[in-house]
């Protein structure tokens, strides 16, 4: 009886997880096929080890530029957002000021706004600033995050009060307290939020789609979408190769920082 139920459980797991990763396996195997062999089924499921498609796809679009754009945008966004959010979380945790709870409620309120609902007004603001087709347009709107402020504040509040008292006795300024004591003690939280914001920025699509107009400012997601559109129906193996090398960096990051990623995502439950 026990072994039977074990078998059923493994059966369910293998089927569901198999179906989950099968499409990903398929894209990588297809990317290593020739166009003829890719359409043979199920023989096409075993990769040939043909790297031609990667070379072909690589030559068809300025991928290095797209990668560079995405890297620049994501890293700058994360650094700025961590900086502004750490400062704000500090003021919400350690400084006493009138209206603090109200302003904090307002910051939490921004987490309730779906970006899609303010897409058009934001676009009009960006156009007013003359930021269309710039990196700035893709970075600055995300250079602070209600979620990051909320998350970091939670961690700052959990720091032992004795540390604060000791710092007070030593006469440390708030600024010194923040950088010498608080930040080193919430490194884990900063890493979690940072990785989460990085994924959000790296995978962003709708916003860069509307604010970019030329390839030299497009991030990799928009580059891939345009590439699929132009190559659609012509050569799937090349498209598969492009999708493959767009996915690879994220997969590497996931395997390196799996704990932080699942932790951050489980806590927010929000992803655009």
């Amino acid at each position: 009886m026990r072994t039977l139920s074990q078998t059923v459980k493994y059966g369910i797991l293998i089927v569901v997880v198999g179906l989950t990763i099968f499409p990903i396996w398929w894209i990588f195997s297809t990317s290593l096929e020739t166009l003829q062999s890719a359409f043979q089924f199920p023989a096409g499921l075993i990769p040939h080890g043909d790297w031609q498609n990667y070379l072909a796809a690589w030559k068809l679009a300025p991928w290095l530029r797209f990668f560079g754009n995405s890297m620049l945008i994501s890293i700058t966004t994360v650094l700025l957002a961590l900086f502004t959010s750490t400062l704000a979380a500090f003021a919400f945790t350690f400084l006493a000021w009138r209206g603090r709870e109200w302003v904090f409620a307002g910051v939490l309120g921004t987490m309730m706004v779906p970006f899609e609902a303010i897409l058009v007004p934001d676009y009009l603001i960006i156009r007013q600033f003359d930021w269309i087709n710039t990196y700035t347009a893709q970075i600055i709107p995300f250079a602070a995050s209600g979620f990051a402020i909320f998350f970091l504040r939670q961690f700052m509040r959990s720091l032992p009060v004795e540390i604060r008292d000791a710092a007070n006795i030593d006469g440390a300024s708030d600024w010194g307290y923040l950088w010498r004591i608080v930040v080193p003690n919430i490194r884990a939280a900063l890493a979690t939020v940072g990785i989460y914001l990085f994924l959000l920025s790296w995978n962003a699509f709708l916003w860069p789609l509307v604010v970019t107009t030329t390839a030299n400012r497009e991030p990799i997601q928009v580059g891939l979408a345009n590439f699929v559109q132009t190559a659609n129906g012509t050569d799937w193996t090349v498209v598969a190769a492009a999708a493959g090398f767009v996915t690879l960096p994220v997969l590497v990051l996931y395997f390196v920082a799996q704990k932080q990623i699942t932790d951050a995502i489980a806590r927010t439950g929000l992803k655009g």
């Binding site: 990903i24 790296w202 699509f205 990799i220 997601q221 999708a243 493959g244 996915t247 994220v250 997969l251």
Partner: peptide, 8 residues
Amino acid sequence: PYVMPLVA
């Protein structure tokens, strides 16, 4: 699948 770029 959840961490993969949706475009891909």
